[in-house]
Design a protein around this nucleic acid. Structure first.
Lengths: 304, 304
DNA sequence: TTGATAATTCCAAATTATGGATTAATATTG
DNA sequence: CAATATTAATCCATAATTTGGAATTATCAA
């Protein structure tokens, strides 16, 4: 395989697929070609891109980094070759509706998007902040940003970043209760709970090497992550919080990270849009901007 | 010409040359290929890149713009593919994921690996302790340590040490039951059993010159080797234990080794890693360290 | 244990790229 | 003004590369 760019294109699709076979169908080529392209790429890069057996294919950490870079390069090349088409098309203008999580959206996306609007005077945005996954609303949206997982293949989804979770408490709290040495210790100490607005039930705490914990008797309960953060900062109890909420407090010493080695697998941050029909230019522009922006954000300022 | 990137590379050199012939010399290809590449590029872009006659070639305004963009893209692609050259030159660094057995790993590997980390500040380790052989997890690991056998030839496995097994009991127990003189005597006496987490079934006892024994009515059952050791130390019953668990107790007289001449063939301790694809330097370094370390460990302090 | 499916390897066939020979065009020179 | 020299373009046989069917191996599920 002499064609570096083609290898990257194949790699990108494989990374978005759950296995080589699926990728080969999407690409309209044989699975053999996929195998060869990935192998060639791995040889060139000197590092594996996928952990794979005949029944399982998962991307490596290195692979994840490479996808983002590859996508950038591919987009640029395609942009080069579509210059004449672009000028033919209508300019990006019109209304774009986006749904996103409350806290995360207002903290990270709102500032970026207002900046974006200055560069794209023809575009209007309609932002809906909600932690609820409401399909009726979602179906009327052009773009969505969500944390967690999708089981929905009507969408084109891009995993653009990830959220880590930390168990945290104030230094005073730690002094009072003693530092928990293992996961089980936590459940004897005061803690706060967060309601999942979708189900009305408590969010479980998850760990790398311990079963999920469903808070049964929290000192404080809310359905708003920021409120929970505020409560934790007062020293009411321990909590498992997303890095974008608590990282800065860990850095400045207001909070202490407990049992960091028990951090669960990080959650994905996804940008998605409905797959129906051709994509309007204005939607594509905003979508690409969000993907770009979110991929670059450093949510976790901690030095691990 | 299918290779967009190659076309851009040729275009770039032509733009820097005064004519196609010169470019062909610089590129080490024939002038025909240059002609074709530029023609193809112009067809794709829908616009001429050079004004040319047989005696003169000058770049168009459109061509000038394209050179700049092409150079950007080419640099990015090259940067992508030069990652490995840098990392090959540099010291090993990055994340290495290792899976290992609970007890054995924490007792022998954890101390060694934490020491290793001090000498290799660039390396991060992700250690997963499990007695389960879970392929889904295992496939995402860079290195594994296991006791026993492999049926899997996708791995590069090194047998680095071995585990011996002893039938042991407390001196009090021996005094109470009388010292077993042959294997069959054991089965009439109290004993403990260990569950194989992979199968949910009892581990058989094995002997040099007697058939395997499947504990049918143990006084005490667990799936954790350390718990079984603790039970045996209380004098509940006899057990067949790995040397790294019981050797020191035999030495200090807390346990007595029964029928040592019936010890089964020792089990291998293996360090392995997936065979596919190239091996990252950081993985190689840790792998070699583990092989080295494990080969040197004296698990059995007994003088046989 | 069997059946089904995915990844990989091998290899012959199909496709694509290559450059020598030729042709066409045009500036320079005698 | 014609002869000469030089270069781009075209044609085409050959070389090189890519492709996917068939066979192999591995793994999971029933």
């Amino acid at each position: 395989m002499k064609n570096q760019l083609e290898m990257l294109r194949i790699f990108k699709v494989v990374a978005e697929s759950s296995n080589f076979k699926e990728a080969s169908v999407r690409l309209g080529i044989s699975p053999q070609s996929v195998t060869r392209a990935i192998k060639e790429l791995e040889d060139l890069l000197g590092e594996p891109l996928f952990y794979r057996s005949t029944r399982n294919t998962t991307i490596t950490e290195f692979g994840k980094k490479m996808v983002l870079k590859s996508e950038g390069v591919i987009e640029q090349v395609d942009a080069l070759f579509e210059i004449q088409k672009r000028s033919n098309l209508q300019a990006a203008e019109g209304l774009v509706k986006i749904t996103m999580p409350n806290t995360f959206g207002q903290q990270y996306l709102l500032p970026a998007l207002t900046g974006f609007l200055k560069d794209h005077p023809g575009i209007q945005l309609d932002l809906r902040f909600s932690n609820l996954i409401d399909n009726v609303v979602a179906d009327q949206m052009d773009i969505g940003v969500r944390v967690g997982f999708f089981s929905n293949n009507r969408n084109v989804a891009r995993r653009v970043n990830e959220l880590k979770f930390y168990i945290v408490g104030t230094p005073e709290l730690v002094a009072r209760t003693g530092r928990p040495q293992q996961v089980n210790d936590l459940f004897q100490m005061p803690y706060t709970g967060l309601i999942d607005q979708n189900t009305g039930r408590m969010w479980p705490w998850t760990f790398a090497n311990a079963p999920d914990f469903f808070p049964t008797s929290p000192k404080f309960t809310t359905d708003d992550p920021e409120a929970e953060l505020a409560a934790v900062l007062t020293g009411i109890g321990y909590s498992q919080l997303a890095d974008f909420l608590c990282a800065k407090y860990i850095d400045n010493g207001k909070l202490v990270s407990i049992l960091p080695e028990q951090s669960p697998a990080p959650w994905g941050i996804y940008v998605y849009r409905p797959q129906r029909g051709p994509v309007a230019e204005r939607v594509r522009v905003v979508f690409d901007f969000l993907v770009q922006t979110l991929a670059e954000i450093k949510l976790d300022k901690l030095s691990v």
